[in-house]
Design a protein around this nucleic acid. Structure first.
Length: 379
RNA sequence: GGAUAGGUGGCCGAGUGGCUAAAGGCAACAGACUGUAAAUCUGUCGAACUAUGUUCUACGAAGGUUCGAAUCCUUCCCUAUCCA
């Protein structure tokens, strides 16, 4: 069997690299963007859509799928791949983000987190061991350690304790994983530490001893200013092992991703393209635009004249504007198709630029077009 | 011709003497969205100006009562339903 991760090409001008991640469901070319399908569905898109778009891996969520449809359904279905009939790799988040996002609905202690289900209020206790076993039963390819994603801003003392907790849980995840692993799944550790560099360093050092299959940066992009995020990201990235995949959880915008790849990050996931699509914000190579805006009512040009996705080849801005205004369900689908297409396409551009030793120039060109055009607030 | 119910801001609709430039919804005009409690949320939404305030114009029309009227009275106009 292949090594989990191989580096194909290192940029000569930046820390960026092109690589391949091997899983039993196929190969993932990095740097990669992973569409988010929390509940076993990338909202509004079908599995065939994902194949056609060229999505090489998607994300799903332990917490959500555990609550609904529940483990019994997923076990009887034969795992998540079979259940949703998706043949490519799947990565599941552990529920650590829900520790953050479900703020008032959970209680943390040394051994785990007590959640009140956002669906029916029922109580569920998640421990690192349990989270690993759930992901084991999902049969997915890459599982994440159970961590605490800390809010921003947060006091040093709290974050310090939180890092200790996340490390402790990472150890438990790892040892449970070693017990149950059948060599067809991989486990990634998650670096925390908030906006404190020494805590980030501490978190990495402790996780490195556990020798995970990959390493993720967690707890960023939670409301902090962009420059602070970039600062912590590049500081952290430098200590992440070179020979393993580096995953920035929850990112991000096109410009953020370029910047992260430049520092050697390989994997990204974000709800932004699908959520924004459903809310009317579309990504183009000339920046973001809000298709709801009145200016598109009579705009019979394609959404993005540089894009060859189904939507851009077949429909006008005026039509997309109309569909959205009219609350047509097709609006959500077409918008999502385009936004995911955009993300995957520009990651492809990034990979090519690294392979051609042209990363910095391509990045500059991308930024200039993306920021100086019709879109507003293009970060 | 008679009876009844009504006429409120772009639309629907609450409001029966001061707290009303007028609830709420829709529409409209913008904005936000980053390991998805999200097809969600936020702001603006009569006009003008020396604009966190001031002045106009406004609840079918015209008069009136009152310190004060979308709210009470009179007349008129219009709409819906029913009866001849």
């Amino acid at each position: 069997m292949h090594k989990h991760f191989e580096i194909i090409k290192k940029s000569t001008e930046a820390k960026a690299r092109v690589g391949k991640i091997h899983t039993s469901h196929g190969i993932i070319n990095t740097p990669i963007f992973m569409p988010v399908g929390t509940q076993g569905s990338v909202k509004s898109l079908s599995q065939d859509d994902l194949y056609d778009l060229g999505a090489e891996i998607i994300l799903a969520n332990t917490y959500h799928l555990y609550l609904r449809p529940g483990m019994e359904v997923l076990k009887q279905a034969g795992g998540l791949h079979k259940f949703m009939n998706f043949s490519r790799p799947i990565l599941t988040d552990s529920g650590g983000f829900q520790v953050f996002s479900l703020g008032d609905l959970r209680k943390i202690d040394e051994n785990g987190v007590l959640f009140s289900s956002h669906i029916d209020g029922s109580k569920h206790y998640f421990t690192p061991e349990k989270v690993v076993n759930i992901q084991k039963d999902f049969g997915i390819d890459i599982m994440m350690c159970f961590d605490e994603c800390v809010k921003y801003p947060e006091k040093y003392e709290y974050v310090k304790n939180s890092v200790n907790l996340t490390t402790k849980w990472a150890k438990k995840c790892k040892s449970e994983f070693e017990k149950i692993n059948e060599n067809n799944q991989f486990l990634y550790g998650i670096i925390q530490g908030g906006m404190y560099k020494d805590l980030r360093k501490e978190s990495i050092d402790e996780l490195l001893e556990l020798d995970f299959d990959g390493y993720a940066i967690g707890g960023l992009s939670v409301g902090e200013p962009l420059d602070e995020m970039l600062d912590i990201m590049s500081y952290t990235a430098d200590f992440m092992p070179e020979e393993k995949p580096r995953y920035f959880m929850g990112l991000g915008s096109p410009l953020e991703i370029w910047n992260c790849v430049e520092q050697g990050i390989d994997m990204f996931d974000c709800v932004m393209p699908t959520r924004n699509a459903r809310n009317g914000t579309l990504f183009t190579f000339r920046g973001k635009l809000n298709i709801k805006n009145a200016q598109y009512k009579f705009d019979f040009s394609p959404l993005d004249d540089e894009c060859d996705c189904y939507v851009c080849k077949n429909h006008t801005r005026a039509y997309l504007h109309h569909l959205f205004r009219a609350n047509e369900i097709l609006a959500l689908r077409l918008n999502s198709l385009h936004n995911i297409s955009f993300m995957l396409k520009f990651l492809l551009k990034i990979r090519e630029s690294i392979l051609n030793d042209d990363f910095l120039r391509q990045k500059k060109m991308f930024f200039e077009k993306y920021q100086n055009s019709e879109g507003k607030n293009n970060v």
